Computed example of a mutant assay.
Amino acid sequence: MALNEGNIDWVVAAVALLAGIVIGVLIRHFSGSQRATSQKLKQRLAETELELKGLRENVNTHFTDVTTLARNLARQSEALQSRLDADASALASDPALKRRPKVDATEESEEDTTSLHIPRDYADGNGTLDESYGLRQKQESHGTDPQPPRY
């Protein structure tokens, strides 16, 4: 069978058509999987954003509730303190107890001012950062064993 030039053109055209179909199918297959992967990632991102939004709302609700509880606790503490002061002044027979709330208030104000000092990296007097800290004074009484020199 001899192929003439007209038949060769048809064979080349058929092979090119088949190759084009195969290449088109492969491109469609791979681009479709990328779209599916992209779609899955977008869905996961949307779910994660929704979950994050819910968590933020829960945190805001939690802090609001805790703030309310702390304020209620402070009010109850103040009410309890005022009731104790009133009961102590009305029922206590010891005059020192009647004056005690005023003394406590002055002590608290003094503690507040002393607790606000800036931290220091040195000690007053003979503190732990003093060079002579931990060294014993020479005793002039009994003869003690001589200590080796310090370097």
Rank of each mutant, 00 (worst) to 15 (best):
79 A>G: 02
123 A>T: 15
35 R>C: 00
60 N>C: 00
43 Q>P: 00
113 T>G: 01
109 S>K: 12
58 N>R: 15
101 P>R: 01
115 S>P: 00
118 I>E: 05
125 G>S: 05
54 G>E: 15
135 L>Q: 10
53 K>G: 03
70 A>E: 10
74 A>Q: 12
1 M>K: 06
123 A>E: 11
119 P>Y: 01
77 S>I: 03
50 L>G: 14
3 L>E: 09
46 A>Q: 10
44 R>N: 07
101 P>W: 01
22 V>W: 10
108 E>T: 08
108 E>A: 09
134 G>W: 05
68 T>F: 02
18 L>R: 14
110 E>L: 10
17 L>M: 10
28 R>P: 00
31 S>F: 07
19 A>K: 08
49 E>M: 05
36 A>N: 05
85 D>G: 01
69 L>Y: 04
130 D>A: 15
124 D>F: 15
131 E>W: 12
110 E>I: 08
12 V>I: 13
54 G>M: 08
48 T>E: 10
151 Y>F: 15
15 V>Y: 12
147 Q>A: 13
37 T>E: 10
49 E>A: 09
77 S>N: 09
27 I>Q: 07
12 V>S: 03
105 A>V: 03
17 L>G: 15
63 F>N: 14
109 S>A: 12
74 A>L: 10
110 E>A: 10
135 L>H: 13
130 D>R: 04
139 Q>V: 08
23 I>K: 13
31 S>R: 08
136 R>M: 07
121 D>C: 02
23 I>S: 15
53 K>R: 13
135 L>K: 13
79 A>K: 03
82 S>V: 01
130 D>G: 02
62 H>K: 11
69 L>H: 08
31 S>D: 02
148 P>Y: 05
134 G>Q: 04
15 V>G: 00
26 L>K: 03
79 A>I: 02
44 R>I: 08
76 Q>N: 09
30 F>E: 06
124 D>C: 09
126 N>R: 06
150 R>F: 15
134 G>V: 01
117 H>N: 07
14 A>T: 09
13 A>M: 09
110 E>P: 00
80 L>Y: 13
5 E>K: 04
56 R>W: 01
114 T>N: 04
140 E>H: 05
127 G>K: 03
5 E>N: 06
63 F>W: 08
68 T>L: 06
133 Y>D: 02
119 P>G: 02
85 D>L: 00
82 S>R: 12
59 V>L: 13
79 A>P: 00
142 H>V: 15
128 T>R: 14
136 R>D: 10
126 N>Y: 06
96 A>F: 06
121 D>V: 02
28 R>N: 11
115 S>F: 03
101 P>Y: 02
144 T>D: 11
97 L>W: 11
65 D>R: 09
64 T>D: 05
78 E>D: 13
77 S>F: 02
135 L>A: 04
122 Y>Q: 07
103 V>E: 15
38 S>E: 08
61 T>G: 05
44 R>Q: 13
100 R>P: 00
47 E>S: 14
123 A>N: 14
32 G>S: 13
115 S>G: 06
58 N>W: 01
